[in-house]
């Protein structure tokens, strides 16, 4: 149940993102003032239109594109950087890894969303910067989890045996340790994926992320606040899309954890 709901919702979100140009009935940026603020069910606009007469269905579909792209990029960067740092920090227990973990502690002592938002406010807005700020705020979780796993994996007999046979350190790390921490990396990635998507939407909602007129769920919700009294659909649909995507990815992550690595606590 959990598995199929998770896979179904996630697949639907990815399908919406990939097929947006073919599924969308209109251009998400094309304004048509005559058709402004039409409710759902209007002919030609199944989910209605916004204040500029732009088709809401098209904007929600293209929003999926943006959300999943940002989530995927951020997960890849954080898994790469945080995973590698955690791998090395767990394997080489000298002062650099102590320093690294201290930095991780300091960073974790600050609310994630506030940190990413502050970075955006300072270095600037836009697609590239939001991916960078989310990555900068998110790598610590990987570094921590992976380091912890490596500390235990490297004590196992097969690693000790390989070391005794004279296997080089790089080979030991990448051939013997990495494959055994990979499940944790995958599980953390799937659980982080949804929190990155929600965080991006929150940051765009507050005005520090993707800017209008680009159809991002967060900035659409932010714009919808001015029309809440007479156009509920502008707030309902982008938010529902966001919540369902997050729900799907969360369920998928839970299921992956139960299957791959039941003891992992994130």
């Amino acid at each position: 149940m959990k598995k199929w709901l998770g896979i179904g919702l996630t697949a639907a979100a990815f399908a919406a993102a990939l097929l947006a140009p073919w599924l969308a009935p209109h251009d998400p940026l094309a304004a048509d003032f005559v058709q402004g603020l039409r409710p759902p069910g209007t002919p030609g606009h199944p989910l209605g239109t916004d204040q500029l007469g732009r088709d809401l269905l098209a904007r929600v579909l293209y929003g999926a594109r943006l959300a999943l792209f940002i989530g995927a990029c951020t997960v890849l960067i954080t898994a790469g950087v945080g995973g590698l740092l955690g791998l090395v920090a767990g394997f080489v227990e000298r002062w650099p890894s102590t320093v690294l973990m201290r930095i991780a502690d300091v960073q974790l002592s600050f609310p994630f969303i506030l940190l990413a938002m502050t970075i955006n406010a300072i270095v600037g807005l836009g697609l590239r910067n939001i991916i960078l700020s989310l990555s900068a705020a998110g790598w610590v979780v990987y570094a921590r989890v992976v380091r912890g796993e490596v500390l235990s994996v490297k004590q196992r007999d097969y690693v000790q045996a390989a070391a005794a046979l004279g296997t080089g350190r790089a080979r030991l790390l990448f051939r013997h340790v990495l494959p055994n921490v990979a499940p944790s990396i995958i599980v953390v990635a799937s659980l982080q994926f949804s929190s990155f998507i929600v965080a991006e939407a929150a940051i765009s909602f507050l005005g520090f992320g993707i800017q209008p007129p680009t159809p991002a769920w967060g900035s659409m919700l932010s714009e919808s606040r001015d029309f809440l009294y007479f156009a509920w659909w502008l707030a309902a649909f982008p938010g529902a899309a966001l919540a369902l995507t997050a729900l799907g990815v969360n369920l998928l992550g839970d299921w992956l954890r139960d299957t791959l690595d039941p003891k992992l606590r994130v």
Binding site: S194, A201, A202, R225, L228, A240, A243
Partner: peptide, 21 residues
């Protein structure tokens, strides 16, 4: 599970719509 997936700012907007509007 629903509570963890629902973004707070969306929940807020929906509550405003129902209870205020």
């Amino acid at each position: 599970v629903l509570g963890q997936a629902t973004p707070g700012f969306w929940l807020g907007l929906m509550l405003i719509f129902v209870f205020s509007v």
